[in-house]
């Protein structure tokens, strides 16, 4: 039994139109995604904006209604589980949000933000709550004395750590990290990422790491899935994806990673042009008549590519 298994997940949004506002079509934000995660690993979900990667993450946490498919967490299907059972399971699955500004309620003190999950699940006294809040503030590298402050008194990086502290208080097993560093300065990004790796070891966390930044993904992830228009086009170990990309869309993405060394500039440019030509020429070989990716096919035990 896999730790987390997403089976043929679909999230469609209806488009209403016509005189009586009937549903005339759907936006297929997520269109049949299959993912397996083992405990303790970090799985990266990559794609351009609008490809459905964030929707996938939100659907796992039931923040978005799934149209069809299953999300099996330790064998329990989250899409059909009872509200009561879901409440229990929420402890194990937490999320880190992209925007450290809107994800913390500006009207609440840090202690209330960090203690919110505790109040829902564990009935502690005020004193114990404060103690836990202080503990976690220190765990994420912030002063435990600042728990009576309000979110606006912290920087973006600090806020993101508070968001992480809040997610950690329930000792979750799986954390969905939705672009956790893309709203932060590059200088702060590394701090937060390293910190996330630290706590992963410490708490034996499993990450579903959603990002559009290939550099960040390579730094963080064991396995990677490339998403395009609601479907996975390629999946494999970090090595498979970065060193042996097979799908034309993946190739294009990888070739777009900037290279710092100016000596390679000419070479890099030539590669990009070559891949762009290939993309234009062989587009039909990789996508069906509707412009959708094909089903994934194994080309090695760890490496899957969407081919006809």
């Amino acid at each position: 039994m896999a730790f987390l298994e997403v089976k043929d997940l679909k999230v469609y949004y209806p488009i209403r139109g016509g005189f009586f506002k009937r549903v005339i079509d759907y936006v297929k934000a997520v269109d049949g995604i299959n993912i397996r995660l083992e405990q303790g690993e970090t799985y990266g979900l990559v794609g351009e904006s609008g490809c459905g990667k964030s929707t996938t993450g939100r659907a796992l946490l039931k923040l978005t209604k799934t149209t069809s498919g299953q999300v099996l967490f330790n064998g329990t299907d989250l899409t059909s589980v009872s509200a009561h059972k879901m409440h229990e399971l929420r402890k194990d699955i937490q999320m880190i949000f992209q925007d450290p500004y809107s994800s913390l309620n500006p009207k609440k003190r840090i202690v209330d933000i960090i203690a919110e999950p505790l109040r829902n699940y564990e009935h502690l006294s005020r004193k114990e709550e404060n103690k836990v809040a202080r503990e976690y503030m220190e765990r994420v590298g912030l002063s435990s004395d600042s728990i009576y402050k309000y979110p606006h008194e912290f920087s973006g990086g600090q806020r993101q750590r508070i968001g992480i502290a809040r997610a950690l208080t329930l000792n979750p097993k799986l954390i969905v990290a939705d672009e956790p560093v893309s709203a932060l300065d590059v200088s702060v990004q590394a701090q937060v990422l390293n910190f996330m790796q630290d706590i992963q070891k410490e708490f034996n966390l499993t990450y579903l790491f959603i990002s559009h930044d290939l550099g960040v993904i390579r730094h963080m992830c064991d396995r990677i899935g490339i998403m395009y228009q609601g479907r996975l086009v390629e999946e494999g170990l970090s090595r498979d994806i970065y060193e042996n990309p097979q799908h034309i869309y993946t190739k294009r993405l990888i070739s777009a990673i900037p290279n710092i060394d100016p000596a390679h500039r000419e070479k890099q440019s030539a590669i990009r042009h070559q891949i762009n030509d290939e993309y234009n020429k062989s587009y039909k070989n990789y996508f069906d008549n509707d412009g959708k990716a094909y089903q994934l096919k194994a080309i090695s035990p760890t490496h899957f590519v969407a081919l006809p």
Partner: peptide
């Protein structure tokens, strides 16, 4: 997102 966050925290 703070509303989404509260939902995931079981509130």
């Amino acid at each position: 997102d703070y509303v989404s966050a509260s939902k995931t925290l079981g509130t």
